[in-house]
Design a protein around this nucleic acid. Sequence first.
DNA 1: CGATTCCCTTGACACGTTTCAATCCGGCCG
DNA 2: CGGCCGGATTGAAACGTGTCAAGGGAATCG
Lengths: 340, 340
Amino acid sequence: MPRSETGSRDVTVGIKEVAHRAGVSPGTVSNVLNRPERVAPTTRARVQRVIEELGFVRNGSASSLRAGHGRIVGLMLHDLGNPFFAEIARGVEDLMSERDYGVILCGSASQARREERNMRMLAEQQVRGVLVTPVSDDRGSLALLRERGIPTVMIDHPATRGDQCSVTVDDVTGGRLAVNHLLEQGARDIVFLGGPLTIRQNADRRRGALRALEETGTGSLREVIVDEMTSRAGHEAAERLLAELPDAVFCANDLLAMGVLRVFLQQGVRVPGRVMVVGYDDIEYALASAVPLTSVRQPPCKLGRIAAELLLDECDNPADHSHQQILFQPELIVRESTTR
Amino acid sequence: MPRSETGSRDVTVGIKEVAHRAGVSPGTVSNVLNRPERVAPTTRARVQRVIEELGFVRNGSASSLRAGHGRIVGLMLHDLGNPFFAEIARGVEDLMSERDYGVILCGSASQARREERNMRMLAEQQVRGVLVTPVSDDRGSLALLRERGIPTVMIDHPATRGDQCSVTVDDVTGGRLAVNHLLEQGARDIVFLGGPLTIRQNADRRRGALRALEETGTGSLREVIVDEMTSRAGHEAAERLLAELPDAVFCANDLLAMGVLRVFLQQGVRVPGRVMVVGYDDIEYALASAVPLTSVRQPPCKLGRIAAELLLDECDNPADHSHQQILFQPELIVRESTTR
DNA sequence: CGATTCCCTTGACACGTTTCAATCCGGCCG
DNA sequence: CGGCCGGATTGAAACGTGTCAAGGGAATCG
C-alpha cells in the first residue's frame, strides 16, 4: 500500500514524501530546510506548505549521520542540586534554545569516572560541542572529545592550553576578598571549610585565603576538607567545629555555609557575635537565610550564557574563531553574617 | 591511503574497521555491542579488546537512524532556576545515567509556545521518550509526540487519559493542609498568592485552599495572581499587600514565599506575629530562611526518579507495560513562620 | 559413518538525510 | 539567431549502524 494516500498526518513522512507531494526532488526539500536562500521563493513556499500540511519533522539522526554532527551540545556540571550550577544550566539552555540547539545535561558528581563515562556518551551522540565544569586538571576525558574534533568550552575552570575557550571567575581573588574582610572584622583564628583540593575551585579559594593571611601578616588558617559540597556536609563539619570554635568560617560555597549556619544557630552559637561565616557563590538563598550570608558573588547565569556563545562561535566559524580565556572578577557581598 | 595503518587512534574508526582488525564481520561487532550474549566468549573478548585499543566509539546517529530511536530521553521542566525542578532533574538524570541513557533538558518557562517548539526538537532527535511537567491541559504538544509513538510520562500533572503514566502529588490536599493549618492558628483573612491558574498546580492548590475554608466555614480568601513564580514576583506582590495586610499568606511555592518574607521583614512586619506565611515545595532553603518557613513538602527527587523508571519500563516492555497514575500525598512541615 | 541439531557467524540491505556534480532552462549579449 | 551565463533543480552516492535470513562447522545421536 502506498503510504499516506490521504491528507492525514503519518508518522513515517520523510523528505521523499514531501518532495513527491510538492512535485520537487528530495534535494530541493533538503535545501529548503538547510539553505532556503538557494531555493526560488515560489518553490520554497510550496514546499513549506506541504511540510506544514504533512506535519513533517526532520529525522535528526539521519541528519547528523550524514552531516557529521547535529544541533545538540553537551553540558556537564558537578551538581545539579546546587543552585549555582542550576543557574549555569539555565543560562546555557536559554541561549541554546534561542539558537535552536538542544542541550544534553550530565552530572559528574565531581567524579572523574562519571565524567568520563558521560563524555563517551556525548561523543556517541555526535554532539556539536561540550560545555563542562571539569572535575580535575588532567585533561583525560577532554582528550576523548578533542581527538574527535569536538569543541570544548570550560566553565569555571581556566584553560591551561590555548586550544580552547574558558569562562572563569577568579577564585584566588575571591578567597582573598573573603578572608581580607574577615581579618578586617577582627577575626584571627579562621577555618577554611571546603571540598577536595583536587577540585580547582577549592584549591584556588584556599590559596586566596592563604594569600590574604600572608599579605596582612596576621591570623591563621585551619582547614577542614569534606567530601561533598552540600549543606549536609556543612552540617556535619560544623558539629565537629563546636569543640573548638574559630573566630570565623570561610566556606567554599554557600551550601556548606548554610549547613554550618544552621548548626551554629541551633547550638546557640551567635553569628556573627561569636563566629562569623562567609559563603561563596552568593546564591539567591544566601540573602534570605536565617542570618543573611556574606558571600562572594559570581554571575552564574552570565557564565553559562557566555560560555554557550563562545562554543557556538567556535562551531559556526571554526576558521576565524580565536580561543578566549574570559575571567570575571568576583565581588564580595557583605551581609550580617560577618558584621558585628 | 588505507586508514589507520598504525595502532594509533583515529577519529574515523567505525564498526567495519573494528571488524577488520578483529577478523570478524561487522555484524558480529554489532552483536558484541548490542547482544553480547549471542557472541562466543572468545570472539567477544577479542572484539572488545580491539574496541578498547582503537578507542572506538559507536556512532549514535547511525545507530538511532537504523534502530528508529536512541538511548536518549527528553526532560521538559517549567523552570530550572527553581530548586524544586532542579531536584526533579537530578532524580531523572541519576536514574538515566545508571541505565546509560542521556537526557536532553528543556525549559518551557511555562509557555505553551516554547513547550511546543522544544517538543518538536525532541521529536527530531528521535528521543526514546519524554518526561514533562506540562504547561497546560490541552494536550497540544504532547499529541505531536504520541502521533509519532514516543512514550510520555507526565510529572506533577495527572494524566487525564489512560494512555500514559503520570507521577503527581496531590495539590488539592496540599492546599487544604496549608490553609487548615492557618485557620487553626487563628488566621481569618488569608491571601492566596500564586501563578496563573491555567497552570494546574496553581489551580489545584487554590482549590484546596477554598475547600479548607468551606469545610470549616470560617475565614475568607483573597487572591493575588502573578505572572512568574519567582522570589522577585513574591517581592513585588508583597509590596502591594503592605497596604492591606492579611492575617496570613499562602504562597503557591517557596520562592514566592521567600520573596514575601523578605519584604515583610524589611518593612518591620513581624512574621508570624503580624502575618503568617506558608510556602509550597519545601525546598532545602525553606528550612534555612530568615524565619524558617512552614511549607508543603513534596519529594521532587523521588518524583523524577520514579517517573524515569516508568518511562524506561514503557520503553523496554511496551507489550506488558501498564500505564500507572502514581499519586503522592504531600506533607505539611510546620516551622516558625506560622507558629506564634 | 552420516544425519541432525544447535550455535556462531556472515553479508548484504535499509534507515532518511546531505551533498555535489551534472543538468536544465530562461534570458542576455554579441 | 546562436552561444553563453548563472541561478534553480535534480539524482544518485554516501554516512555507519542494526537486522535477519542464510551459511558454516562442530558436536551429538542414531
